[in-house]
């Protein structure tokens, strides 16, 4: 049943017409009279479903189609083709009942009143979302407590740091207790501590209220901490949809073996490519299929103090994924 899903996307397409011209004055003059258009297929027939309460990471390089998809799901863009449903609604109809149940947070933009304390903006949102006063207070206070912004909401937003602003921004975006959260780069530009804070907040919010979260981020730490499932999108197509751990299995052609030897670390080159040395500890890169054989060989030949076999760091895997042009 379709309505079992919080988000249902089937063969979703978005084609943009973009004006195109060469650089230079002559081309500029020409385009005044006759403009050339080029069709850009930003989203290329993607399909996926997200169950209620799931946190899904949406990964892809810049221009992959992530934001376009999020905008189609939040009703800002009309799909060129295919189907999108969020909580059973067709987003592009922008029905009030739908808009009251979702929220969109964009990390690089703010929507609170710049010169006023956030509390005033919250009051405005309360009215726009028609939240009864009695329901509003506990929700607001809970969010303020969870994000630890008790002092900040009384200061004019313009006086807050980037990270503080993001936190009060998130409070404002969740006052109507949306069931689906679209978070577009919510931690962009924030320091590590602040990123962590926001991450743990999203996890806690999801746990408490069972909200569905679709998150894009360039920080793999965000994705690793929050998302059991990732959807990797590139050139408008889905390259991978599954558990984060599966990503390395499917795309990484090698593993890393970390090894510490009793008698120094000479001659390890013959087991694999040495990519790192740190005192006793040596890291080797070994083709995935070879890993068991090489590990066994090491243990048999050398006086091994310690040995680990790991998937390559997730950043490297993602890079590998994006390096592939087409999955087929």
């Amino acid at each position: 049943m379709m309505s079992d899903y919080a988000v249902h996307v089937a063969a979703l397409e978005k084609v943009f017409d973009v004006p195109e011209r060469e650089a230079g004055l002559r081309a500029a003059t020409k385009s005044l009279v006759r403009r050339k258009w080029r069709q850009v297929r930003a989203v290329h027939g993607i399909s996926f479903d997200i169950a209620p309460g799931e946190i899904v990471g949406f990964l892809g390089p810049n221009g992959a189609g992530k934001t376009t998809t999020l905008k189609m799901l939040s009703g800002l863009l009309y799909p060129t083709g295919g189907e999108a449903r969020v909580l059973g609604h067709v987003p592009s109809r922008r029905e009030r009942a739908f808009l009251r149940r979702i929220t969109l947070v964009m990390g690089n933009r703010n929507q609170l009143q710049w010169d006023l304390p956030a509390l005033d903006s919250y009051e405005l949102n309360r009215a726009i979302y028609r939240i009864p006063r009695d329901d509003f207070r506990p929700v607001r206070d809970e969010l303020i407590e969870l994000l630890d912004v008790g002092d900040l909401v009384r200061k004019p937003v313009r006086n807050l740091s980037l990270g503080e602003r993001m936190k009060v921004e998130i409070v404002g975006a969740l006052l109507h207790r949306p069931q689906v959260l679209f978070l577009d780069e919510p931690t962009i530009g924030l320091d590590v501590t602040m990123q962590k804070r926001i991450r743990s907040f999203v996890a806690e919010y999801n746990r408490r209220h069972g909200a569905t979260v679709l998150l894009t981020s360039h920080y793999m730490a965000d994705v690793q901490a929050l998302c059991k499932r990732v959807i990797v999108i590139h050139h408008g197509r889905i390259l991978f949809d599954g558990p984060l751990t599966g990503l390395a299995e499917q795309f990484a052609a090698y593993k890393t073996i970390g090894v510490a030897l009793e008698n120094g670390h000479g001659g390890l080159e013959r087991y694999g490519e040495v990519i790192h040395r740190d005192g006793e500890w040596v890291t080797l890169r070994v083709p995935k299929a070879e890993t068991p054989r090489v590990a066994a060989q090491l243990l048999a030949d050398q006086a091994v103090l310690d040995l680990t076999i790991e998937d390559p760091p997730i950043e490297d895997v993602i890079e590998l994924v994006f390096a592939q042009e087409r999955p087929e």
Binding site: L76, R94, R96, L99, T103, L104, R109, I128, Y129, R130
Partner: peptide, 12 residues
């Protein structure tokens, strides 16, 4: 600058 998006995601 694309900020109109916020007005359009409000139930109003």
């Amino acid at each position: 600058d694309g900020k109109l998006d916020y007005a359009l995601t409000k139930p109003e």
